[in-house]
Amino acid sequence: MSDTHSDEALAAGTPAPAFSLPATPDQMVSLDDLSGKPVIIAFYPADWSPVCGDQMALYNEILPEFHKAGAQLVGISVDGVWCHAAFANDRKLHFPLLADFEPKGAVARRYRVYREKEGIAERALFVIDGAGIIRWSFVSPLGINPGADGILEALETLGAAAPAEGNPS
């Protein structure tokens, strides 16, 4: 349970702060690369949290549903690229984990989900629309995997407002 989680995460209606972070030792991913389609950002405290209840492993299973809604998912933590690579390989993740490693937590700070005391990101979710506006955000208590129902509902709300790309009918 979290006692000090920040209640000030960037809220719906706020333009999503730009970022460019390494996904692998030689590949950067920026929010601009992802623009035009909804983006789900899952900030999380650290790689290697216990299995079965692991949030990233759960999202990995739900990835086809996110893609159906036209959305891209990225995970962000303060772990470095090699740590992310080992973690993603172990959990067979099919979406990028971005390293908010140097300067440490800079992107988490911009989204106001950085925990100074522990030096990690909150367990925080953002759904950003194709125009780069945050449409939903949620901060979960640190030890609690928030699941994906809130993300799917937010994507549906977006889809109702503006049909997803690549759906010609």
Partner: peptide, 13 residues
């Protein structure tokens, strides 16, 4: 079954 669980907030087993 799985997606019904996701919609119900299942986050692990």
């Amino acid at each position: 079954d799985f997606m019904g669980g996701v919609r119900s907030g299942v986050n692990g087993t």
